[in-house]
């Protein structure tokens, strides 16, 4: 270690050794400052900076883990709500289908009833009409027979001047019957 003022050429300054890093005269000073600075840095990193950075990283990891957990919880509750919604929707749909089916059955039954009633009424009317027609036909046939008897009696009276009893006329008409 030279105490003389530093020179710009360097050749004059290197009195003890040509190669500065091997100049043993500077070693005590170098070792002293190395020990001081290294020890200071070690203590700061060991006691202050290291725990501080480690704590911050740990806190962030914990916070992220917590928030992920909360997000997972929210996702699960959203899924549950979705499932509840879906099941409610399905129940409502089933109920609506049931009501529609019921309604349809009722309407069909009503239609059937009405149809049956109408048919019955129609048949009834037809039967009545037929009966009336039959009665009228019989009556007509009766009138024809009576007319024939009268005609027969009249004819007989004209031809032979004899009156015949209605019974005879009836028998005669019957005998000549159709």
């Amino acid at each position: 270690m030279q105490t003389a003022p530093a020179t710009t050429t360097g050749t004059v300054a290197q009195q003890s050794n040509a190669f500065p890093p091997f100049d043993t005269a500077t070693f005590p000073t170098q070792l002293f400052w190395l020990a001081i600075t290294f020890a200071v840095l070690f203590v700061v990193l060991w006691r202050v900076a290291g725990p501080r950075i480690g704590g911050v990283i740990g806190e962030r990891k914990a916070q992220i883990a917590d928030e992920l957990e909360a997000a997972e919880k929210h996702r699960k509750s959203a899924e549950a709500a979705e499932a509840a919604h879906q099941s409610a929707l399905a129940a409502a749909r089933a109920r609506a289908k049931k009501a529609a089916d019921e309604n349809r059955r009722q309407v069909t039954a009503e239609i059937e009833n009405a149809k049956a009633a109408t048919e019955a009424a129609a048949q009834d009317a037809a039967a009545k009409a037929e009966a009336r027609i039959a009665a009228m036909r019989q009556e007509a046939a009766q009138h024809v027979t009576i007319a024939a008897q009268d005609v027969a009696a009249a004819i007989v009276a004209r031809l032979i001047g004899d009156t015949i009893s209605p019974q005879e006329a009836e028998a005669a008409v019957k005998a000549s019957g159709t």
Binding site: A13, P20, P21, D23
Partner: peptide, 11 residues
């Protein structure tokens, strides 16, 4: 005049 080793002198 420049010496590349001068920068390693502990002054």
């Amino acid at each position: 005049a420049m010496n590349p080793m001068e920068q390693f002198e502990v002054k």
